[in-house]
Design a protein around this nucleic acid. Structure first.
Lengths: 154, 154
DNA sequence: TTCTCTATCTATAAATT
DNA sequence: TAATTTATAGATAGAGA
């Protein structure tokens, strides 16, 4: 008989805690089920229990995956906006540097002291590439909402 | 006064449907909040409303992102890395060009110094490989459960 | 719209089996 | 341990402000 409003499961032994968590999880999933059916939405829930590595995915791993993929695509789309801009910026920077290099190379060619064609060739083909692979990144603090204008594109 | 047990929002006008959805969403998030605090779990919920492109993320876009990142890491499914990698690649390219410019400028300053061994050495080590890492991988349909052995690694 | 009210429905704590 | 029961807490439909 619900004599307390809500139990704080953290005050209980692990067994009790887990059973409380079980029941609340079931309730949450039931709510989500109601929501998804009666309101016709796509939804996914991911839960990590304390100290557990293995997550719990509702409504199933693969259905959750569908929603998450869609979600990430949305975020990716928004990031690409910025990213492409930044990419463009960097590309332009590269082009500019390239120009400078060409000019400097021309200057060097005109130095009478250096006529060796092999050298020029070497400079011309210098580096591009570079390995790399790091993976910085951030979890962008960006909110899901669009910044600007219209709220939805439906 | 709750005369019906649960309304199927799909039978109503869009306004009513949205308000039903609003309330149920709030309830769901409240339950999730209870769960996450009182049961000490990390959780994320993603919802797509029908016909809407923009998703709703609980508890916030960035907190959801944390959980999703962890989830995806668990699945070893990282799609965002590619994008960041290309940015890194371009940034490194810029840096490299910059180096070249610096060196070439030095060359110009030192017109006569082409016999300088340091210079020759510098030129010789300029560009090296390229190698951009491709980006395989996929969104594996793997289930959340481990295949084999123990159920948790806590 | 967004809030309030409240009867009724649903979830849940605690006991029982 | 897992189900069932039961009383109370919480959520919600519907109406009104």
């Amino acid at each position: 008989m619900a004599t307390k409003r809500l139990r704080d499961s953290r005050n209980y032994s692990e067994n009790v805690r887990n059973s409380i968590l079980d029941r609340r999880e079931i309730s949450l999933f039931k709510k989500a089920e109601e929501l998804s059916i009666l309101c016709d939405v796509e939804a996914a829930i991911i839960i990590f229990r304390p100290g557990k590595i293995q997550p719990i995915a509702w409504k199933s791993a693969s259905l959750a995956q569908d929603v998450l993929t869609r979600y990430l695509s949305f975020l990716e789309f928004k990031r690409l906006d910025k990213l492409v801009t930044h990419e463009d910026y960097l590309q332009k920077l590269v082009d500019k540097k390239e120009e400078q290099i060409t000019k400097l190379q021309k200057m060097n060619e005109m130095e009478e002291s250096f006529n060796d064609p092999w050298f020029i060739q070497s400079i011309a083909t210098l580096g591009d590439g570079s390995g790399i692979e790091s993976t910085p990144k951030e979890g962008n603090g960006v909110n899901v909402e669009y910044d600007g204008h219209s709220k939805d594109l439906d």
